[in-house]
């Protein structure tokens, strides 16, 4: 049952991701991307990570995608823009992509993934709570990365203001 649901959402994600790249209309691409995000959120739920799933829907499918659509509306790019400039790169890109896909397939087939599981089993998560587990990790093991991220966001903000403000 779990496997069936996994394959369902995984194939939805792959089809939508392809659609995002292939579709000519930017708005259609953005909507396909939304489908990818939601399908990924479903996969996170299957992995016993409901908090990550909720964050995925809120942040990616919600905030970031809205931003994309806004930008698309404001700039209203012409359909099929700039495709001609990439003529000779296309076969090369396809080849590189194919090689990479084959490599990944070999890795997946060899299935040498570590079987050891982390400390957060479903039972343990049920006991301490999912959000609590993420929060505790952020303030203990990942304290330094967490603080660096705050600096990173500050720099991004300063940068946007510097580049966009009137002079």
């Amino acid at each position: 049952m779990e496997l069936a649901i996994f394959y369902l959402f995984a194939s939805i994600a792959i089809v939508a991701a392809l659609g995002m790249v292939v579709l000519r209309n930017a708005v259609h691409s953005a909507l396909s991307l939304a489908v990818v995000f939601v399908a990924l959120a479903a996969l996170y739920v299957l992995l016993n990570a409901p908090f990550i799933a909720a964050a995925q829907v809120m942040i990616y499918a919600g905030a970031i995608l809205i931003l994309f659509v806004f930008v698309i509306m404001l700039l209203s790019p012409r359909v099929d823009q700039g495709a001609g400039a990439l003529k000779w790169q296309r076969p090369l890109a396809a080849l590189c992509g194919l090689v990479f896909a084959v490599e990944l397939a070999i890795v997946a087939a060899s299935a040498l993934l570590p079987t050891e599981r982390g400390p957060f089993t479903p039972e343990r998560l049920a006991e301490i709570g999912d959000v609590q587990a993420v929060g505790a990790l952020l303030f203990t093991d990942f304290l330094l990365p967490f603080e660096i991220t705050s600096l990173l966001l500050l720099v991004a903000m300063v940068g946007v203001i510097v580049l966009a403000k009137k002079r």
Partner: peptide, 23 residues
């Protein structure tokens, strides 16, 4: 690797802005 990635972003982001600083 997590610190390396975040540091990479923290060093790059200001440079993207500085490269475009002469608006």
């Amino acid at each position: 690797l997590i610190i390396i990635f975040l540091a990479l972003e923290l060093l790059s982001l200001p440079l993207y802005i500085l490269a475009a600083f002469k608006r």
